[in-house]
């Protein structure tokens, strides 16, 4: 119980502190990095639902990110809808694609699931690149209008800082509620042992499709924010490496652990900014080398991540945990 109180104190401090950052002496640059960190927290929380909670390695997450970004970009360019509507429509579109991907892949596990999701995201990028009539292909979509509220268009860095903080909070609350609910427990059960879960009366189809849909819609919300923030999107932004980066965040932090994935984003995104400054221009992309090493080393030394999921869970609900892991004593 002592740990729980300590955690509550940290959360309260963060809740009070984070909104104050723009009032401090921080520059636009710091705010932009923090906005990126929060954006990747949203994305990794979304990926965490499928890869962490349900235990299926999703290599195509960036596909949903791209779908969300292009949904937002195209809706802004053609219809100029309000920001709230765009975020909602992007989430719905992401969920639709999540279901479309989820239903046929229900039977797959492990490597085959990973490779099909990978193929999906590559097909999304190919589609975006080649269907010029819809997406303008390799030219990308530029000049996406910034979101505006009550007639005021957002332009300063701190506007977007608050916007992404609000989105992150909403996503965090949703995921927290899901984790503690019947749905979350069903996901853990599926992750631990699919067949045993089915025998306990868990409807695999329902819960897996639900996980895909929610995960995809969170990814799409992240993409929509990105499009509105960066005002320019390009097919190359949604390549496989982006998926690997997000995977790296949750592997470093701890697959399945909400705080772990957020810690992963907090550590790696600033690291990649530092590398961006240190590395010469032509070696820019080689910062992925570090991500590769992180993946390998984490799997070898600490496969549960910096904040393992199991501990997070045991602090919260020892009883539920006992019930869940009973048939799987050797975990992890």
């Amino acid at each position: 119980m002592h740990d729980l109180q300590w955690k509550k104190i940290v959360i309260v401090i963060l809740v009070l502190l984070l909104p104050c950052i723009p009032f401090g002496s921080s520059t636009d640059y710091i705010l932009r990095i923090l906005t990126t960190v929060y954006l990747y927290m949203i994305l990794s929380l979304g990926l965490n639902i499928v890869s962490g909670f349900t235990g299926l390695l999703d290599l195509g997450y960036v596909g949903f990110y791209g779908i969300g970004a292009y949904t937002a970009g195209l809706l802004t360019i053609h219809f100029n809808l309000p920001f709230g509507v765009i975020i909602l429509l992007a989430a719905v579109n992401g969920a639709i694609w999540g279901i479309l991907l989820g239903v046929p892949t229900l039977r797959l596990t492990g490597d085959y699931f990973a490779i099909v999701t990978f193929g999906f995201s590559e097909l999304v990028v190919l589609f975006i690149r080649n269907e010029l009539w819809l997406t303008r292909g390799p030219m990308g979509i530029s000049g996406i209008a910034s979101p505006s509220f009550f007639g005021h268009s957002l332009s300063e860095s701190w506007h977007f800082y608050y916007l992404v903080l609000v989105l992150l909070s909403i996503v965090l609350v949703i995921i927290h509620r899901l984790e503690d609910s019947r749905i979350g427990r069903a996901w853990y059960a599926i992750r631990e042992d699919e067949i045993a879960a089915q025998c306990c009366g868990i409807n695999l189809v329902k819960y897996k499709v639900m996980a895909f849909a929610i995960s995809a819609s969170i990814g799409a919300v992240g993409g929509a924010f990105y499009a509105k923030w960066f005002t320019f999107i390009h097919p190359d932004m949604f390549k496989f490496w982006e998926s690997v980066l997000i995977l790296c965040l949750i592997v470093l932090g701890g697959m399945g652990s909400i705080y772990g994935t957020m810690l992963g984003a907090l550590l790696i995104i600033p690291l990649s900014e530092v590398l961006r400054i240190i590395l010469p221009q032509y070696l820019m992309n080689s910062r992925y080398l570090i991500y590769g090493i992180i993946l390998v080393i984490m799997m070898r030394l600490r496969p549960d991540g910096l904040i393992p999921f199991q501990i997070a869970q045991s602090q919260k609900n020892k009883h539920a945990q006992k019930r869940l892991f009973r048939h799987h004593e050797t975990y992890p």
Partner: peptide
Amino acid sequence: IRKSPRLAALITAIGMSIFLQNLALILWGG
């Protein structure tokens, strides 16, 4: 990691793939 879960091996494989690809990028340029 041969005795670890298959997910760990798969993630290691992806990590090695990215590592080698970027190593080539550093050694020979893009």
